[in-house]
Every structure is written in C-alpha cells, then in structure tokens.
Amino acid sequence: MLQFILRRLLFIIPTFFVISFVTFIVIQLPPSDYAQTYVSGLLAQGDNIDAQATLKNLRDLYGIGEPAYVQYGKWMWGILTRGDFGMAFEYQQPVSFIIWERIEFTIVITLASLLVSWLIAFPVGIYSAVRQYSLGDYLSTFLAFIGISVPSFLMALVIMYILFKYFNITLGGLFSSQMEKAPWSLAKVVDFLQHTWLAILILGVSSTGGLIRTLRANLLDEMHKPYVITARAKGLPEWKVVIKYPLRLALNPFISGVGFTLPLLVNGSIIISVVMSLPLVGVMLLRSLQSQDMYLAGSLILITSLLTIIGVFLSDMLLAWVDPRIRYQ
C-alpha cells in the first residue's frame, strides 16, 4: 500500500512538468505576443508613440522574444524558488497578487456545486435504479435528460430574467458592494450565499443529469449480481441490502471520476461566470488568452492542472481505500 502511494506521488512530478511545458508552448504559438497586441492597441487609439522603441522596451522588460524554452525555464525557476509566477501584463501586477483570491472563490463555488449535484444525484439515482421503470424513474430520467441537454448558461439567463422581472432580484458578482471589502464574518458568508446560490445551483444541476444516469446504470448492473441475492437471503431488509452491497460497488466509477470533475467544473463555469458576472478563474483565463497575457494564462492553467493532478491522486487513494481488490494488488 505504501509503495502504491509512493509510486502515485512520484508520477505527479513528471506529469506536472509535462503539462506546464506543453501549455506554455501552446500559449506562445500564435505569431504575435502581448507587446505587439499592446502597442497596436495604443496605435489604434491614436497615441503618438515610437512603436519600435516601445515594443523593444516592453519585450526587454518582460523577457519576450527569447526562445520559448528559455522563457519557460526562467518562469519555472521563478515559481519554484521564489513563488514568483511572473507579471500579469494587463493588470501591471505580479500574477501571484491577483489570482489567489479568484482561485479560492472558484474552489469554494466548485466544491459547493459538486456537493449540490451529489446531494441531488445520489438519492434520485438510487431511487431510479431500485424502482426501475416506475413513474418516478421515468420522471427522473426525463428531467435528467433535460438537465443534460439544456445549456446551463441558458438556464442561468432564463432564471435571472424571471428573478429580475417578477421578484426584482438581481444576482451577479460574489458580494454586495458594501460587503466587498468587509472582513469575513457570518454576515459576509450569508451575503456570499445570497449572491452565489443560483450559480452554485445551476453549476450543480448541470452535472446532475449525467450523474443520475451513470449511477442508475452502475447500480442496475450491480443489482442483479449473485451477492445481492446472498444478502437478501440473509434476511437483510431491502434498503440495507442496496446501501451496503450494490451501492458500494456502484460508487467505484464515481470515485475514480472525482479527479476529473474538478477541472470540468472550473472550465464549465466559464460561461456561467461570464453570464452572471462572477469574478472566477475561468473568466480571467479567457481574457488572458485573448490578450496573450502569457504568464497569467500559463499560471492559471498550471494551477488548475495541478489541482486536477491532485484530484486524480486523491481519487486513486480513495478508490484503493474503498476497494480492497486494488489495495491488495
């Protein structure tokens, strides 16, 4: 077991470097750079500047123009030795100054919506499988397919419209303006929830449909296995049978999927965050990619992929904990 954990931990290191290198190169690939974008932006506004000199200054300042692997090396060195992720050109601030808060909020909202989707999906999925082809099963299947097929941003827009039109509620942002800078308190948490409940709900619901279907299918596969009959033959009441035996085995695919749910929710939240003007990582990443703000984009991808790797590692550990067949290999 210890060897298993150690091996998985060691795998993290090369994976991390490969991902960060590849993303860094890909960001660099378009035939322009931030300095170019910036200068042509200034020129377009009619500023009277010496284009060539400014361009050269900017490139020298930020180390743009050197070969990509040299830039990558310097950037990585900075991160590993000083925790310095480089400059966010557009914000004129070090990357590490501006991203952490966003990442924290993104994680909070992501985890909250993951929780919501599980809280809905588990009971409904179990019900659907245990009472297969019942009215409730058909109903939940119907709703699940609607949940899968209706884009979440559309749902968000419609609900926001209804809330505004009939209840005069505007949702957007994370806090009300007076709470924005206030120190953390119970009131601020309440304020946060008041502003983000819809986003959490919609993000959660958008993955619920798929989860219900997966759980139903997994559980139905397990429900007819001989060990379930054994459990019934022991005299266990039906609900205990389901929870202890088939559900336990039906969870394995879920647990191995947890690692991949995290990045999916981060990426999946981009459109929702734009629609509901939530200052989350996704929006910042989108913007930085458009303006080729390479250190910012690189750092964001680096951190999300690191989260993914950690997520996969954790789900591996969980799986080994839950399933002895993996543990005792």
Binding site: I229, T230, A231, A233, G235, K244, R248, P324
Partner: peptide, 21 residues
C-alpha cells in the same frame, strides 16, 4: 425467516460473496 430459519448456499462462491467486504 431468511438467514435465520431457512438459509441458502449458492452456486458460485466467487460472485455470491461481495468482493469489497
């Protein structure tokens, strides 16, 4: 009655026992 007064033994001892307990 099941398990207490009438007990059963099944054909496939591999699949009739839960693999994770």
């Amino acid at each position: 009655i099941r398990g207490s007064e009438i007990a059963m033994v099944f054909q496939e001892p591999m699949t009739a026992l839960s693999p994770v307990h």
